[in-house]
Design a protein around this nucleic acid. Structure first.
Lengths: 224, 224, 224, 224
DNA sequence: TATGAATGAGCTTTCATTCAT
DNA sequence: AATGAATGAAAGCTCATTCAT
């Protein structure tokens, strides 16, 4: 953390050729951060370019300068959000556990994960309202690999080899069950709460729900 | 111009009181139908009063006359949608089955149910984007009973009494699992399809998914 | 000018059912008048919807209400301008003259005509800058008959029959010569004036130019 | 990084004074070429500085550096265009022909000339839409001699002396007739084509039109 | 001589809503 | 009960131009 005056490029101050460029990156990043919040908050149609600009350290004009328009900005937001989630998923490490414990762990980590990224889940809901048309339009997103699915696939394979997992499902089915549970908790929190009077994200019930998910998946995979 | 009191119902002038009212009801129903489609299609902010009016057999002015404004119309749409779903749920009849079969049947019916009401699920997603603020504002909706939950409660009670169901869950937990699976299939269909290349609503996989849900819930409840 | 209270519909005041409609027509006509002036004055790209609205007795919003947008307004302006010119041309009457005098008269009337409609000629120039793309887009304009050409055709036929006109031209060639002369005088007035120091529309030279055109066409058609 | 004084012209750094200037001239010429195309294509208001810059090998900033702004660039374009046309006109040589043939030749060359410079004619149309205000603002353009007119004047004088040309016209009148025909063919090509269905520039009719113009002017000048 | 980043002013367009009848 | 005309406010976007280096 202490400045090392010996080698390398100066980190921040003392304007070098690269500085301007870094400013541009900072401006873009600033816009993206604010835009992510606004789009997640109000949806695509509900978000306002004016509002986004006002909450930024730059002006509306810069949004058009860097992103081109509302839709492209929204796509950039989606791209960044998905990329970040994917890079988090890449850190999953459950290979050292036996299949049953591994699957429980994977479910648990996915659970934690969704809980700590509510904005991402809102963006996904919003994008579904738009029938994923923006994802389809983004080259980055259409070809995005999914690390979590690979991990799941590997666990299942080990489980099948050991004869502990049922064989009439594939990884995507299991992923769907886990995602369904985790996404629903967050995405449908408000209507569920309004109608049943229970907050699915209530911290007091968190551990219960986390265990429920693990039990659910394990019970299903090991049934019979 | 003078009223002819002789025969038949005159089409427009001097109508019987009841007729007028029936026309009014028909107009309102027409508006609601169109508005449901539009809101489900484009979201609250994305829907256009103009579009709705144009697709109606009346005019924009009537929307304001009968509903007051965009938000009230949207709330009326939500109220109608929820009421219809609730009245369908009231027809559930699984009391003649043993608990395990009853729970499997309930899951299956819920599954069918969600699949045949995609617009309702879209409305729910949209309402969650708005943090259920409109539900909160509707007296009709905040106090709406949930028949499906009562049925579920009854089944679980029978299962517990018979000692076949685990006891560390309540009806709402189970409902959440079932709903999560069913809602996710529909609500997240597009992003899931765009990223994993599998349509969760593909008819070819329908039976598999329906059985999966039944197995999932039963395996969980009967585990140990 | 004095009010005749006897018969017919009241001309302006005393609101009848038709009044509202007349107001709408008046509003549209008002917009079209102002828009014609602005587009003719500054070209399509140079004209401003804001400016047009300000010079109108209504608001900018009404332009969109009635015409849809800038381009449609411009097309409506073109349509009205062409229609008016065409209906003027329909009043041409030279059948009573012998072919030579008829052709001279037609040229003269065309001359007068162009001189008294400079805005129309400016609009035509502007539309040519845009490669007539708006005319192509207008159903009204693509199928507009041209009365002047029919009259010319009839004169030529009479002249040919009488053996007084050369036969190696057709009506469209002659029309092109006459139009070329008349349009050039008006359309290129400014650059011509700036470079040669002579105003082609100088009233003092008007008669000379009018006779020149007549002589030109007659000399050509009767040559040899 | 240290300058190597040894051989050859260094490509970028430490250039010879003349070289820099030549590069500057090349940059200016590049900008002018692109700007001419853009202004001729879209008009003054319709052309975009951004577009021009993008189609250039330099940047937008250079346009401001060398020309000062959009209007000055446009004026520079006009100046270059007129100068080129004028220097072409200076090559006219018809003194060896008798007056009638000379006038026919002059008309024909003018005809060719206009046909091969459509962009120039578009610029002139555009400048007329702006009432020649930019020409008026340019010192270069307001004092530009017109060689073609001098040639025409000389021919007419010879024709008058020989008693073969009518005397009630001056050179500018004749120039106006010739220009009118040639300019109209090109400038009004699109509306004429859209309305009459005939392309005035159709190569198949080219010779006919060229002869028509010659006959027209000769017939007029030699009439009676 | 050259450049990427930035900008203010103003453009076209859209929206839910209300007025007058 | 019903309607066509009208509207203010604000939305998304574009433009020629200048700043900082």
């Amino acid at each position: 953390m202490t400045a090392q005056p010996t080698d390398a490029a100066p980190p921040d101050e003392a304007a070098l050729p690269g500085e301007r460029i870094r400013d541009a990156e900072r401006t873009k990043a600033d816009i993206l951060t604010v835009a992510t919040r606004e789009f997640a908050d109000r949806g695509y149609a509900g978000a306002r370019i004016n509002e986004i600009a006002d909450k930024t350290s730059t002006t509306k004009r810069m949004i058009y300068y860097y992103f081109g328009g509302k839709e492209q900005l929204y796509i950039a937001v989606l791209e960044q959000a998905y990329s970040r989630i994917r890079s988090l998923e890449q850190q999953l490490d459950v290979e050292h556990l036996d299949p049953v414990e591994a699957i429980r762990e994977l479910a648990g980590l996915t659970f934690d994960h969704h809980e700590s990224h509510p904005d991402f889940i809102r963006l996904v809901s919003i994008e579904n309202i738009h029938r994923a048309e923006h994802i389809a339009r983004s080259e980055v997103l259409s070809g995005l690999a999914n690390p979590a699915l690979d991990v799941l696939e590997a666990i299942l394979r080990r489980g099948w080899a050991a004869g502990v997992f049922r064989e009439d499902v594939d990884a995507l089915d299991v992923h769907q069950v886990i995602s369904g549970f985790c996404v629903f908790r967050t995405a449908n929190r408000h209507t569920f709460g309004a109608i049943f009077g229970r907050d699915m994200l209530d911290p007091a019930r968190r551990e219960h729900q986390r265990r429920l998910l693990g039990d659910l998946v394990v019970a299903y995979l090991t049934a019979r």
